[in-house]
Simulated scan of single mutants.
Amino acid sequence: MTHRLTPKTVFLLTLPPLLWAGNAIVGRLVHDMLPPVLLNFLRWLIAFCILLPLAGPVFRRDAGMWRYWKQYALLGLLGIGMYNALQYMALQSSTPINVTLVASGMPVWMMLTGWLFFGVPVSRRQVAGAVLSIAGVVLVLARGEWRHVLELRLVAGDLFMILATIAWSLYSWLLTRAKEPAAIRADWAAFLLAQVAFGVLWSGGFAAGEWALGAIPVQWSWTLAAALVYVSVGPAVIAFRCWGAGVQAAGPSVGAFFVNLTPLFTALLSSAFLGEAPHGYHVAAFALIVGGIIVSARR
């Protein structure tokens, strides 16, 4: 399959990291208002309700979804049932910036997943691009001073984020290997709803297990309601739509480098909420991350 990095593809792969940066911040803000796995379940339940009017016919017996139900069940498990549940669990004990630091290893996991499970060779350009891109991420996290890197400490939440990153790598590769009727592939809402339908079942089961183990009670408020709306519409429906289209156009390995924009956006959003102006190292980091993307995508 031939992949190209066009301006449209760049936009499709850049918007999700911006929305996911907001997702990390919101997830941290509400971490003491409701359990993390329940947050994931409610998020995708709302997304399911949004998508249902757009692609309800996908559930018809002749739509073809049921013929490939195992495929959609696996995509729903990895991308919906596991990834964000693990991320919200990570945010219980880790900060958004630390979570996005761990997620910055996505290019490495993506390359390893492609090599181990799908027989995709790793090129020197991809390795060089990974080094440049991760250097940009570390520069942001170090706030322009490398001594701050030594002060970072991994906690239990960071281990959850490692598992989440591996799950997302598998999900992204499976997106490019997915087989489904042309009608579903041509309709982004139908393709996403087919995954969300199974993902809601997975996340609902996980939430029930969390509740049985003694989860914290939900503290309902307008802040929590607004947070649920945001994570359901932005990082869920819009981001998954753009990510799916972008990965299919550029390939999982190239798409993984765009994930490294998430820590940069997280730092910028955090600065905005704190009233701090961006610094010179933000520009340098952006150049390194974009440079890694360009190097990895060159033929």
Rank of each mutant, 00 (worst) to 15 (best):
H3P: 00
R4Y: 07
R4P: 01
R4G: 05
L5S: 00
P7V: 06
T14Y: 01
P17L: 07
L18C: 03
L18R: 02
A21T: 03
I25T: 01
G27Y: 03
L34P: 00
L34D: 00
L39K: 06
N40K: 07
N40L: 03
L42S: 03
W44M: 04
F48I: 05
C49G: 14
A55R: 10
P57D: 06
P57H: 09
P57K: 07
V58T: 10
F59Q: 00
A63D: 00
Y68E: 11
K70C: 00
A73G: 08
A73V: 06
I80Q: 09
Y83I: 06
Y83C: 06
A85R: 13
Q87Y: 13
Y88V: 06
M89N: 11
Q92L: 15
Q92R: 15
S94P: 03
T95M: 14
V99A: 15
G105V: 10
V108L: 14
M110C: 13
W115L: 11
W115C: 07
F117M: 08
F117V: 01
V120P: 00
V120W: 01
P121Q: 11
S123R: 15
Q126I: 02
A128L: 14
A130G: 14
L132I: 05
A135R: 13
G136Y: 02
V138K: 10
L141H: 12
A142V: 14
A142R: 15
E145S: 14
R147M: 11
H148D: 08
E151P: 00
E151Q: 13
L154R: 08
L154N: 09
V155Y: 12
A156F: 01
F160N: 07
L163Y: 03
T165L: 15
I166R: 01
A167V: 00
S169F: 06
L174N: 06
T176K: 08
T176G: 01
R177W: 08
A189H: 07
A190F: 02
L192T: 12
V200D: 05
L201W: 09
G205A: 08
G205Q: 09
A208E: 05
A208V: 13
A212Y: 05
G214R: 07
P217E: 03
V218L: 13
V218R: 09
T223M: 04
A225S: 12
L228V: 04
V229Y: 06
V233L: 08
A236Q: 02
R241H: 04
C242N: 13
A245I: 14
G246K: 12
A249I: 07
A250T: 04
P252R: 10
V259D: 09
V259K: 11
V259H: 11
N260C: 11
L261I: 02
T262R: 12
L264S: 11
F265S: 12
T266S: 14
L268I: 13
S270E: 14
S271G: 15
A272K: 12
G275F: 11
H279A: 13
H279C: 02
H282T: 05
A284W: 04
I289H: 01
G291V: 09
A297R: 10
